[in-house]
Amino acid sequence: MKIIMVVDDNEDLGRIVKRILDKEGYETIIALNGDECFNKLKEVKPDLILLDIMMPGTPVVELTQKIQDIKIAYLSAVKISQSDKENMMQQKNIIDFISKPFEREELIAKIKELVGD
């Protein structure tokens, strides 16, 4: 079973994403911030981290520098340009950028594309 970690300070969003992905047969772990993410990574290595770009606490650029061996897809309501995206995805394990708000089907299709069934 593929493991997805959702790192987002919005608890409701985390719960919704977990419900969607659990139904699709993924194991979903929720972390509410960068510190919680690091703590959970000591115990489990997910196949993909869905990382909210706008969270209180440690800036995401510091988080991603410390996570080099797990695929990361950003979740974001921040408006960024194409050149910003290219800049952010220079780190080889940062593989995608999912804009909020997203639809259930869109999320499932994206996760399947990124990690498989």
Partner: peptide, 9 residues
């Protein structure tokens, strides 16, 4: 809530 590049665009 927008990067410099996105705002300029």
């Amino acid at each position: 809530n927008k990067t410099y590049n996105a705002l300029k665009e």
